[in-house]
Design a protein around this nucleic acid. Sequence first.
RNA 1: GGUCGCGUGGCCGAGUGGCUAGGCAGAGGUCUGCAAAACCUUGUACGGCGGUUCGAAUCCGCCCGCGACCUCCA
Length: 497
Amino acid sequence: MNKYEKFPLHLHNSLTKQKEKFEAINPPHLGLYVCGPTVYSDVHLGNCRTFVSFDFMFRYLMHLGYNVRYVRNITDVGHLLDDGEDRMAKKAKVEKLEPMEVAQKYANGFHKMMDILNTLPPSIEPQASGHIPEQIEMVQAILDNGYAYEKNGSVYFDTVKFAKETDQYGKLSGRVIDDLLSETRELKNQDEKNNPADFAIWMKADERHIMRWNSPWSEGFPGWHLECSAMSTKYLGKTFDIHGGGADLKFPHHENEIAQNHSACGSHPANYWVHTNMLLMNGKKMSKSDGNTITPQQLFSGESEHISKGYDPMTVRFFFLQAHYSSTLDLSDDALLAAEKGFKKLMNALPLAEKLVAVSENSNYDLTLSNQIIEKCDQCYIEMSNDFNTAKTLAVLFELAGKLNEIDNGQIKIQQLSTESIERLKSTFTSFVKDVLGLKPEEKGNDKMDEVMDILLNLRKDARANKNWALSDQIRDQLAAAGIVIKDGKEGSTYTF
RNA sequence: GGUCGCGUGGCCGAGUGGCUAGGCAGAGGUCUGCAAAACCUUGUACGGCGGUUCGAAUCCGCCCGCGACCUCCA
């Protein structure tokens, strides 16, 4: 039996606003599309939380036995500012770079950060600028189907017509179409639209625009929402399993995406929509525009007024995992401090699990205890299959960590456990911590460092044996000043940074 | 203003109509030359007011407070 059959996934579908049993279209294959970043500046922490969230979903789906195709795009064209200027183009002017240099620069930074946070690369990472023909085709299809109109070389999606004829618009975001029709805000390029709720799917480039492509309508560029429709259709098909993104993309981005797919393909793009919630700081959404932000680099280095010290990237990942992806999470120094200690505690149990060896054929084991451990192992699956409840999964892993510690300190004798319970404990704990949740121990020193430390630790050991406390404390204190902490255990001393 | 969500112990943060979340901090203990680290044990809770119910922190209503979206957002 497949793991996904034994522990069927249930997830909250933003489209129906209900938790539903997940049914893949073509199991074990599974298509997952996630809206990626617009690469016009450095990634910020909110982005990081979102992509860490989809990373553990990707990891768990694979762990369950699905063959996942995870597509996450890079947006490098079409994302406009309030004044109508393209984000990429503006940055290119400011930094005196080619737009593609800007895209490459920040895409590189994004990938590096994803790597630091131990997220797996997606199966396909398409760029909007590399899929202009596909987007032009989609604009044409929407025009052919009568849900768009051309004005002066630009093409606009006819939201009003679509809403009236299909009863599909506004479903995801809970938007009331009448409210949208009465929108009165002053916005750029409004004059060409028949209605404020309409949106551009192709825009004619004015002379200041440097990013431009030929199309049947004008030399111009595609609208922001179009790339996801075109690329998800290309790589995952007209209807695929799961579409994800940050909650702030629900409207207008995802709503418009759905409208485009319906209009071009006549079908709903994804069966399940998953939205991750916002990262807050001081109770408010972390946002660059109002300065309520801290960069990942500042978080790691500690160079910020918001925190007292730097935090390891894995501590940050652990911090994200402690909350449910669909809840807002408030970043604070106290919370990070607590996460750091909790993460270390969990990681201390990892080698204990890895070194577990089942004793052969012991028939006098403690049945109750053994079953208790097996149940907790199953519980990890139950919790993750319950809408990816990482917070609860961690809680169960901490309970298992307690068992591992008890085995280690002799409170539980290995003979008390059945072979099955030992094997399950070992495999479940290690695979959930490392493969599913994507946590890894902090980097240790290299071999040379270990050799040097061995010399120092042996010197100190001799000093202690001779009751030369002055010397042993001097070694300990000076190493501490260099950021190396000596830990005296029963079986000798170890060190950490 | 419209739409939606949240309010849990000192802090963070899950969850459920009756059965321990978990982490951090606090308290006690083991270990230790001292300390640190590590490990074990452990108390305190569900914004306010009503209602439904044998029973609600969990469901419903109202109120208070907070936040998100409403064409920049992950």
